[in-house]
Amino acid sequence: MIDFLLFDKYVYYIWFSYLLTFGIIIILFIRTKSIHKNTMIQLRIKYTREK
């Protein structure tokens, strides 16, 4: 089952490329979430202070 993913001598190069790709995609999503959280917190602080 798994042998089709054990590519010839380039196996490490290939896996590194795909893992890096998905690593970057995951980081982009996490970063997007944390920007959202931060925005909400900052704005909430600002509005509460204005009251």
């Binding site: 089709f4 993913l5 590519f7 001598k9 380039y10 196996v11 290939i14 490329s17 795909y18």
Partner: peptide, 17 residues
Amino acid sequence: ALIKSPPDYQQGDSVRI
């Protein structure tokens, strides 16, 4: 990309990159 497509005649599986 990883299963269905064939390796390249010169580059082998590295073409998957």
